[in-house]
Design a protein around this nucleic acid. Structure first.
Lengths: 251, 251
DNA sequence: CAGTGGTCTAGACCACAGG
DNA sequence: CTGTGGTCTAGACCACTGC
């Protein structure tokens, strides 16, 4: 990086014009782009800090700041004495980053899943809005029933843009879908935003969960965003919270 | 800090025995202790980085790492060109750190509050468990009704250890309680953990909120923790989510 | 042992705020 | 203009891992 691509040059020459992008931010973005294109395999090891520094023409400290930022975003994992690795969507990560339902008494635990149906269809209005799809787009819909500690407690409906996941509809679906997206389609979910409401359990879900219709249920509306910012998955879950709760830490 | 208080001494002498505590961590803890004892007033400015470094006998870079850590924990606020300040519990901070209910359409907004009753009583079993109180402890209980965009949508019950808040029960209570705790009792809420469930709205809350009993409500059970780790407040809120949702970002 | 990330230091210069 | 935090560099040494 002998030439600063734009603006910002503490310790160097050049002049800042508008908006200051520090060097470590530029390094972060370069590494992020490489990550998004799958330059390193999931779980693979990145070059060492001195190697990256030499390659990018930047000091090791600057590389470190960029790597630390990506680590804070859960995209990398650093282990002293071992190296820096591409974060994987294993159950441990999912459990801590994406799954917030916990049994009232007992350990944090990953749920089992039973796929009920998989269909392809034209995206409806709500799917188009949530996934930012244009009118003629098609989606894959998955219905699942999820079990925690032997109790069926989550009825889940998942919508995916079919264009991003060709052939998904005829696959055998694993319990951990984010792992599948990463391994088979090169799509890495980086973050998600959820909206929670309390609703009356609709008839269909009530039957599936073996509960009375009208039982209060926690409705979780989740939009999952890929590492490159694309909206990848919309998920609507209805949860019986008699023996569960949704844990949220306000730090 | 000519003498390292214990263990860990990269770049120095001494030997690590068990458990390594880096220098910047020790600095963080010293500053944290000073913060907890109110050495600097809320909103006040800390000494500059070079000043702190000289005082603690540590390099500026090490002080910086400690200050950055405390900033990441929302205990400090740093502003380039101005200085480093003790974070205040103003409505802006509360809104972003502690209040997650958002109108489905419309801006993020701080709710209005109407205090219904304030009573003193012996802590019941649930309060003792949540607040870690021993059997004869007493609490102050507050009941509030909260309004968002003109709609009453939250019925709230708050329990506080009376020992921590003498005379609170006869005070006029502001909308922003955390600000009161900090200003009047020197107790700074640093973080909170919430457990969410979907429940049927009980008769009492239903009447207060003008809703039918049995309406589904989002129940938020929040425990607030002070900067020194004490459990300070237990809050149980029941929310009508017809036009609201609880927003949760999974980063 | 060699290689990795983690800590600490010292110094230079930049961006920003306010007098 | 001065003082603040923010960035960048270079180099030394420490802690951890695995051969």
């Amino acid at each position: 990086m002998a030439e600063r691509s734009a603006s910002g040059s503490p310790g160097g020459s050049g002049a800042a014009a508008i908006g200051f992008h520090p060097l470590y931010r530029q390094v972060r973005e370069r590494l992020l782009r490489r990550l998004a294109t799958g330059a390193w395999p999931a779980g693979g090891m990145l070059p060492s800090e001195p190697a990256l520094a030499a390659e990018l023409g930047v000091s090791q400290g600057t590389v470190r700041k960029a790597l630390d930022a990506l680590t804070a975003e859960n995209l990398l994992v650093r282990r002293q004495g071992r190296g820096t690795f591409v974060a994987r969507h294993d159950e441990r990560r999912i459990l801590f980053q994406f799954f917030r339902l916990v049994a009232d008494r007992g350990e944090r635990q990953f749920p089992e899943s039973e796929v009920l149906v998989v269909v392809r269809a034209a995206a409806n209005r709500r799917e188009r809005a949530r996934l930012m799809l244009s009118a003629p787009a098609r989606v894959v819909r998955i219905r699942r029933l999820r079990t925690l500690g032997g109790r069926a407690c989550i009825a889940e409906s998942i919508s995916l843009p079919e264009a991003l996941f060709p052939g998904l509809w005829q696959r055998k679906l694993p319990n951990n879908l984010y792992g599948l997206y990463a391994e088979e389609y090169g799509i890495s979910i980086a973050r998600a935003s959820e909206r929670l409401k309390a609703v009356m359990l609709p008839r269909g879900d009530a039957a599936r969960l073996g509960a009375a219709p009208g039982t209060p249920a926690l409705e979780i509306d989740r939009l999952a965003i890929a590492i490159d910012g694309r909206r990848v998955e919309w998920r609507l879950s209805r949860c019986l919270t008699a023996h569960l709760h949704y844990a949220s830490e306000l730090l």
